[in-house]
């Protein structure tokens, strides 16, 4: 006699869930990991402190929130919205302005800190704006077309932006503002940098990824997706690039010469449902992934074991983030469901 364990077992026994009544645009823990924030389509941000069941909402954007990242400071977050504002949200829920950009949407935000230097970047139209720890604008970097994604490298030395016909990689501290131009014809819609800083990968309109190895200029083409890739995330050790956009978690090998000419590893496939969001674990070779039917799983890459986290029926998974120590996973869906799951040993 076998007993079926519910797909919601982990959610029910280790999770705190809430219905937020708006599209969950992004989730992020702050750098201490003591609280997670969910940025919503109604312009509010919900702050979930560790263990709290009640997540207070703060009004941040007049319109929809479009992007969220942890602040470069130890606590709090930065967010962008379609009200042209870049805002800071404190751990206490206090909201302040960092900058405003007229009529343009603030579609991308990113931050970096190594404990000393602090950087906040945002993508607005064709520009990437960089701010230091005091919110002084360090730089405004102009691109040939609208910026569709930004990423700092692991050391905060460079910032990369995707746009039409390729990507631009800028040195943050450079006196002369000339980017390294990575060219490939087409519309590039998102960007990631490998932890060692040697590979830049973009998602493309044509359901494919394109990559450049910076050390020797080698191009990498990764294709075969049935839909666009929205989420890309390198594993901590840089061996794998986990990607959404297929009916499984697609992992490209970035070791032993790179992904060229190799098939990717596919995990958690077989149901014919698109993977819409994912986040690699900050320490282990593992990836959490969400699907268009609401299913959330945790996949161990080496053993290919799949642990169900939440079952189907709560809307396409649209946001996902790990706490910096990898013990908590936050996720949310297009229909406003959100949860935080505790993976620590009990």
């Amino acid at each position: 006699m076998s007993q079926t364990v519910s797909a919601d077992h982990i959610l029910e026994t280790r999770g705190i869930q809430n219905s937020l009544d708006a599209f969950v645009v992004a989730a992020a823990f702050d750098r201490t990991g003591t609280a997670a924030a969910f940025a919503l389509g109604d312009g509010t941000v919900r702050i979930a402190r560790r263990g709290a069941t009640d997540w207070p909402g703060v009004a941040v954007h007049d319109g929809a929130a479009l992007a969220l990242a942890p602040d470069a400071a130890p606590t709090g977050w930065v967010s962008g919205g379609d009200d042209a504002a870049l805002k800071r949200i404190g751990a206490d829920g206090g909201v302040s302005d960092i900058a405003s950009f007229g009529m343009k949407w603030v579609e991308h935000v990113a931050s970096f800190t190594d404990g000393k230097a602090r950087l906040v970047g945002c993508g607005v139209g064709k520009h990437v704006h960089l701010f230091d720890g005091k919110d002084d604008r360090l730089k405004t970097l102009e691109h040939p077309s609208t910026v569709t994604g930004i990423a700092f490298d692991a050391k905060g030395k460079r910032v990369a932006a995707s746009h039409y016909n390729g990507a631009s990689v800028w040195f943050v501290a450079s006196k002369t503002d000339n980017p390294r131009k990575l060219e490939w014809k087409g519309s590039h819609t998102g960007i990631a940098i490998s932890p060692d800083g040697d590979a830049v990968v973009t998602a493309m309109q044509e359901n494919a990824l394109h990559g450049w190895r910076l050390s020797d200029g080698q191009h990498m083409r990764m294709s075969g997706y049935p839909s666009k890739t929205r989420a890309m995330s390198f594993t901590k050790n840089g061996k794998w690039l986990a990607t959404s956009g297929a009916e499984s978690i697609v992992l490209w090998p970035f070791f032993g010469g790179g992904p060229m000419g190799k098939p990717p590893t596919e995990l958690a496939g077989g149901d014919g449902v698109l993977c819409t969001m994912l986040a690699t674990h900050p320490a282990q070779e593992a990836v959490a992934a969400g699907f268009s039917d609401g299913l959330v799983v945790l996949a161990d890459i080496n053993s290919a074991r799949i642990l169900p986290v939440a079952g189907t029926g709560r809307g396409p998974v649209s946001a996902m983030a790990w706490s910096p120590d990898g013990t908590y996973l936050a996720f949310g869906t297009e229909t406003g469901f959100a949860a935080i799951v505790d993976f620590s040993k009990k």
């Binding site: 708006a22 599209f23 645009v25 389509g41 109604d42 312009g43 319109g63 929809a64 929130a65 479009l66 379609d82 949407w105 579609e107 077309s145 609208t146 569709t148 039409y164 014809k185 087409g186 519309s187 309109q205 044509e206």
Partner: peptide, 23 residues
């Protein structure tokens, strides 16, 4: 790049529709 010579699209609209769908 889909092999169709006259297939041009508005990338800005793809982004904006995506953004509007959040509200």
């Amino acid at each position: 790049n889909n092999g169709c010579i006259c297939c041009t699209v508005r990338g800005d609209l793809i982004r904006i529709v995506g953004g509007l769908m959040k509200r």
